[in-house]
Design a protein around this nucleic acid. Structure first.
Lengths: 208, 208, 208, 208
DNA sequence: TATGAATGAGTATTCATTCAT
DNA sequence: GATGAATGAATACTCATTCAT
């Protein structure tokens, strides 16, 4: 009997996976600090203390590193949102639970928030549409999930009967605005502190 | 009486100003299409049909072109907002008038909206802080103007007594979300069509 | 009865030899198609369906593969020429028999002809003199064999008493010119069809 | 009166042309010594004592340098051949005059001969067909010129009535063989010394 | 002042070869 | 011995900016 080890990865594979993770983490920091174009493969190699050529055994191109980064972090976000969604009761409660979790998620992932938003704004990607498109698809999956929650809340009469798509954009926009400002301010005050105001405005607007 | 001077600008100066304007217009289109890094000075020179070196007599660096572009278009936006502000009665009416004008402004300046938002998201600029900072200052002046309107509306009891800064971010975020989605969709439907929904959510939130 | 000897080659050795042969065949095709520099070791590995590192157990370097290829094919050519030589009567008859066989040989080995000629022209190899030199030596052995035949034909009064070396180059050049043109044209017409013209010019020149 | 200078080139243009010429000369030497792939743009830049980027103001790509080199030198060869052709009487005399001049030309341009022949053998160029094709076209123009001379000589009964194309290849092959051997040997003996043997074999073949 | 031309400093990616198992 | 993976060293081409006129 060779091993009772349940792991399907041998040492080499584990090392590879670890390096991949370290590379993505270093890339996240560098892309956040210097932007995509401003981050050179050489700088990345130095940051992860890996020979330049070795990076190319992990990813075929710089673009792929960026995309994978966005994709994997976005997957974490989905998982968070889905968990929040399934734990809460359907309807408005679920919607608010999701808002709370999304805010909490980005509170822990500032760098990712900036990359996500920047990429989505698409400035740098208009020529290389592949990547811009792909990131847009990811964002849209996130919006779709939220939209289904909104739709249900409307059906239950807990949210106004306006077009679900527009309500969803409004909610996302409201969250993004709060998160964005908090990220830009680089403050130490917890983002969660603003959740009551965010919720109040989301639910009842600015009118007294 | 303006002046009996036939013009404060002689021919040479007028030509310079005209070229400067053409350059900025070409830059706006190219930056929008290809991004900042994707736009080469040579391409810009060709687009404005000006020798490359001549561009450097108008602007000292590529970065300055970008910044000036943002700054001048933002000035137009301020002018619009201020006009709307002074034309409307103070209070909530003024706030809604401003929202309407801002939406209308960006409906006419899609390219600028994208550049504005992208730049603000700061991805590319974090190292060259000067520019990022400067654009942030511009955005903050815009927010300050809105905040003063909000503050007055609160004082008049026409808006909830929540922190004016947060309400302002919420309003801006809500507008941006609607504009952004409209820009990304590249739809032909007028953005103004969504103003009622935007206003409804802004005033009374999603709760029924 | 071939042998009760278990074999001079055991299974492992036989497999090695087979792989070596397959490798050389794949290399011939790839070098012909893409050139020496254009052929990567990785492409070669894929073509022979052998792990890249395994190739290095068969040959120490890319250059050696190329050289071995030329050398082994050239050995076949020699064998052909020598057989033709020993089968024919000495003198002019032998010379013509060799010419015929050489033409026939290259008709069956177009790829090799191109590699042979290209290498000989030495363009790529001048720095790495080892290889260029080695291939030149091979070519010279071939010329030497032909020269000995020419010498004998001169001695028998069947060929003009001019310097044998120069006559040999002339003959080789004439053959190469016909073969080359035929290879470049990629025609379906048999090369052998041109043997009468080649022979006529070789023997009696262009004068009527 | 500005200038009686008949030259249409001002100083700057003359300098540019001079640099271009020096670049081509350096390239010829390097390509000859190290081959096309073995010659780096950096090495070329160092050889001509010009900044690397400046080379790219003279030629858009390495390939273009090589091609231009071949093309310009080939143009010189044509001019030589055409001059010889028009100076001599039509028929066999013209053919022999051309042969003599071609041999003399290559005696003065060894490096070019090797590049020309190597390129024609096409080994390195099979993938980037453009260049290979272009050089083939040049060579074919040269052959066409010779073929027309041969055709006329046949018509005048001064050359055997064999297919002109094949006779032309034979003549070219014979010349190349003599030149090639001479180039490879790097001997000091003048190539022209072998002209009588070449002519004799060309005219009357090897038979006594 | 305007401009054609020049250039310093990059930059992503490749590949023959070597190692650790 | 065989091999999956790692890597040192290259390399053609680019581009914002400057200079010589």
């Amino acid at each position: 009997m060779i091993s009772s080890n349940p792991s399907p990865l041998n040492r080499r594979e584990r090392e590879r996976a670890a390096r991949r993770g370290e590379l993505l983490a270093a890339a996240e920091a560098l892309f956040h600090e210097r932007g995509y174009q401003g981050t050179t493969m050489a700088a990345l190699a130095e940051a992860v203390e890996l020979p330049l050529a070795t990076i190319y055994t992990l990813f075929p191109a710089k673009e792929q590193i960026y995309f994978t980064l966005i994709e994997e972090r976005a997957a974490d976000l989905f998982a968070t949102v889905e968990a929040a969604s399934s734990e809460a009761e359907p309807g408005l409660a679920r919607l608010l639970a999701v808002v709370e979790r999304v805010v909490a998620f980005f509170e822990d992932h500032r760098a990712f928030f900036q990359l996500f938003i920047s990429t989505r704004s698409g400035f740098e990607w208009t020529v290389k549409d592949d990547l811009g498109e792909a990131v847009n698809r990811i964002y849209n999956r996130y919006l779709d999930l939220m939209e289904s929650i909104v739709t249900e809340a409307i059906a239950r009469g807990e949210v106004k009967p306006l077009p679900a798509g527009e309500i969803t954009h409004a909610i996302a926009g409201l969250m993004n605005a709060f998160i964005f400002q908090w990220v830009v301010e680089r403050t130490d005050r917890p983002l969660a502190d603003q959740l009551p105001v965010l919720t109040e405005l989301l639910l009842h607007g600015v009118a007294p």
